[in-house]
């Protein structure tokens, strides 16, 4: 299976009718996703770290780690993707920390963003720029 930047662009350019029909199904902007996650609450800083490579050799598989001690839930966003929401993770009582490490798809270079909902209901966020190089030599 392949999911390449080119495919993402093809979708982007692939006719307004298709876009209009499918947009509701999957295209969520970062602002929409954040608004839904926070309910419009104010956003703070600090207490959350996001680790991602400065340069990713392949946008298909970009390792990221988020850590926000004391968070109830973390939202990870790729604002430059056709659909910005990557994942949300809620931490239960048996969690040993509020850390998540995963691998994500980035359609292009962008600021990967994480928003944490802290136990007291406040929100903090942080972003990290990731440059996606588009390779593709050697088949």
């Amino acid at each position: 299976m392949t999911y390449t930047r080119r495919d993402a662009l093809v979708v982007g350019a692939g006719g307004l009718a298709v876009l209009a029909m499918t947009r509701a199904a999957w295209a969520v902007t970062a602002d929409e996703a954040i608004a839904e996650f926070t309910g419009g609450a104010a956003m703070g800083e600090g207490g959350i770290t996001l680790t991602a490579p400065e340069i990713a050799e392949n946008g298909n598989v970009v390792p990221v780690e988020v850590d926000a001690a004391g968070a109830a839930e973390i939202l990870v966003l790729a604002p430059g993707n056709p659909s910005a929401t990557i994942c949300t993770v809620a931490f239960g009582p048996a969690a040993g920390s509020q850390r998540l490490s995963t691998r994500i798809r980035l359609a292009k270079s962008q600021d990967v963003t994480a928003v944490a909902k802290m136990a007291d209901g406040s929100f903090v966020s942080t972003s990290q720029p990731v440059k996606v190089t588009v390779g593709g030599c050697g088949g």
Binding site: C87, V89, G92
Partner: peptide, 12 residues
């Protein structure tokens, strides 16, 4: 519960 995660197509 330890973690409960919701994934989108943006996960590899």
């Amino acid at each position: 519960n330890v973690v409960d995660m919701t994934l989108s197509g943006g996960v590899s």
